[in-house]
């Protein structure tokens, strides 16, 4: 299967959504330049997609191994708090970013060891950090919202480079880098093999333990990037609310991307499109002028429709129908 045919359903859904929103809000696709910055609903969606898109990249790999990472929202909070703390201590933007990324890698390592070495189920293992980690973040911020004024760090969240907001470049680069690493090396194949049949992969000589730890570390790293982007954008770290519930959006993005929660075959590109779809729905509902109370209901309804259309049952029935028609035609 080529990449394009794999992500075709997500592209179609996204196009349909854009068309739908444009009916309600004709200016949806317009982009203006103000003070050298591009502005417009589409740019806004691309930028606001950054946290979920980043989380979805890591989550895709974890889910491919038949796991789940519930702690990513919390890791965002920890890393944001760590960066803000570093800045308030007078350290530079570079040091703050390095500290935040290190925290994300460490959190991923913790999850990975619990899952792959200790053998705790991923759901439970990452639930531990999900609940405990908020406390860690609150300890770092001492319960306050830590604000800072470092312009260099702020640029990561709200700056513009080459005509696009910096967060957009960050998620694009991360997604492309991960996808290329997975498919240009054998990592993608080995991750899929472990997700489908860990025992068979182990017997074939695949180092499943190291691979599992690696995907949780990757997920922690992506969460750290998301935490940095969010913290830089609002120029402050809020340990209570940063990344709250975003793990659920990330999982949803992966599922909308057509990746099975049972592990195996995965597509990073499709998951990122899933994140864009979620953000387009949210923005579209507001732009179309629905009262915000309807937001969650309409969003849930649309997501349900997308998932039903993608369900393997419907796909296989459609394939059956198509094949029998082809067989008919072949006979006549």
């Amino acid at each position: 299967m080529t990449v394009l045919s794999r992500i075709a359903p997500q592209l179609i859904v996204l196009a349909a959504l854009i068309a739908l929103v444009s009916v309600f809000y004709p200016g949806f696709l317009s982009i203006d330049i103000q003070n050298g910055r591009p502005v417009g609903p589409v740019i806004d969606i691309l930028k606001r997609s950054a946290p979920v898109a980043l989380l979805a990249v890591g989550m895709t790999l974890v889910i491919a191994t038949r796991g789940i990472d519930l702690s990513v929202g919390t890791i965002m909070a920890i890393c944001g708090a760590a960066a803000a703390w570093a800045l308030t201590q007078g350290l530079g933007a570079g040091a703050a970013i390095a500290l935040a990324l290190t925290a994300g890698l460490a959190a991923g390592l913790w999850n990975g060891v619990l899952v792959a070495v200790v053998g705790i189920q991923p759901f439970v293992a990452t639930l531990i950090l999900m609940t405990m980690g908020r406390g860690v973040a609150q300890l770092i911020t001492e319960g306050r919202i830590l604000t800072f004024t470092d312009p260099g760090f702020g640029w990561v969240g709200s700056g513009v480079a080459l005509g696009l907001p910096v967060p957009v470049w960050i998620w694009l680069a991360t997604a492309i880098a991960v996808a290329v690493i997975m498919r240009r090396t054998a990592l993608g194949l080995l991750v899929e093999a472990v997700g489908i049949n860990r025992r068979a992969a182990h017997l074939a000589g695949v180092n499943a333990t190291v691979l599992l730890i690696a995907v949780y570390i990757a997920s922690g790293f992506c969460a750290a990037l998301a935490g940095i982007v969010v913290t830089a954008d609002i120029r402050g770290a809020d340990a209570n609310n940063a990344g709250l519930w975003l793990e659920l959006d990330a999982i949803l993005a992966v599922v909308i991307g057509g990746n099975s929660l049972l592990g195996g075959r995965f597509s990073v590109a499709a998951s990122v499109l899933g994140a864009l779809i979620i953000q387009t729905i949210s923005a579209g509902i507001l732009l179309a002028g629905f009262a915000s109370e309807y937001n969650l209901i309409i969003k849930a309804g649309l997501v349900l429709i997308i998932l039903v259309l993608q369900s393997p049952r419907i796909a296989s029935e459609w394939r059956l129908w198509r094949d029998s028609h082809r067989a008919e035609r072949g006979r006549t």
Binding site: T185, A193, N197, A200, A201, L203, G205
Partner: peptide, 29 residues
């Protein structure tokens, strides 16, 4: 079924899986 095949992977991928694991992830066949 439990120890041998990786059901969703292709025949090609199943055949090269052991060879690839031995070469290491960084050197795809």
């Amino acid at each position: 079924k439990t120890d041998g095949i990786v059901a969703d992977l292709s025949i090609r991928e199943n055949i090269i899986l052991g060879l690839q694991a031995r070469r290491g992830w960084a050197r795809p066949i």
